[in-house]
């Protein structure tokens, strides 16, 4: 969560708000921020740290682990209309790649700005070519996009 906090100013530039959520109480959130996270990120956690005691919210999002009584690592990208555009769920021992979340939002924003006129192929990031879906592109992707573009 400190990695998300470090990237928060960049998220804000994209008009993105971040919410974190665990089953811990708001009191524990305060202590975690004061005792540890604020030592990892200047100024501490800048976004709202939500509390989901009982896992009710995690349950409706399908990521609450009832056996362990905790949320799994579910990350949801929600657009300005309140629509879920993407999610990723990991088991606890493996952390997220915040850069990938950021890249996905950049891609979703481009698709939204072009009203679906452009689509972002595998590995797209700003500066790389997009695809313009339509009858003329059918069977011609190989001409305008190379597999190498998927990788850095």
């Amino acid at each position: 969560m400190s990695a998300v906090a470090a990237k928060y100013p960049e998220f804000q530039k994209l008009g993105v708000e971040v919410l974190s959520m665990s089953v811990d109480s708001v009191f524990v959130h305060k202590m975690w921020n004061e005792k540890e996270l604020s030592k990892m990120v200047d100024g501490g956690i800048p976004y709202a740290m939500c509390s989901d005691g009982g896992g009710k919210v995690g349950t409706i999002y399908g990521i609450y682990d009832e056996d362990a009584g905790v949320e799994t690592r579910g990350r949801f990208i929600i657009d300005p209309d309140g629509i879920v555009q993407g999610y990723e769920v990991l088991t606890p021992p493996v952390g997220r790649n915040v850069g990938e979340t950021f890249r996905q939002i950049q891609a979703f924003q481009l698709v939204r700005e072009t009203k679906g006129g452009e689509a972002t192929p595998s590995g797209w990031k700003p500066g790389k070519p997009t695809l313009k879906p339509g009858p003329d592109l059918v069977g011609k992707v190989w001409e305008v996009w190379k597999t190498d573009e998927a990788f850095d």
């Binding site: 969560m1 998300v4 998220f11 994209l14 008009g15 993105v16 708000e17 971040v18 919410l19 974190s20 959520m21 665990s22 089953v23 811990d24 524990v28 959130h29 202590m31 975690w32 540890e36 989901d52 995690g58 999002y61 990521i63 362990a68 905790v70 949320e71 799994t72 690592r73 579910g74 990350r75 949801f76 990208i77 929600i78 657009d79 300005p80 209309d81 309140g82 606890p92 021992p93 493996v94 952390g95 997220r96 979340t101 939002i105 979703f108 924003q109």
Partner: peptide, 22 residues
């Protein structure tokens, strides 16, 4: 309240717990 953020992009991150290691 999540719906208060309509009009913005939201990243909602669940995680297992405060003071865990990852």
């Amino acid at each position: 309240k999540l719906s208060d953020y309509l009009g913005k992009w939201v990243v909602l991150c669940f995680y297992p717990g405060d003071f865990t290691f990852v």
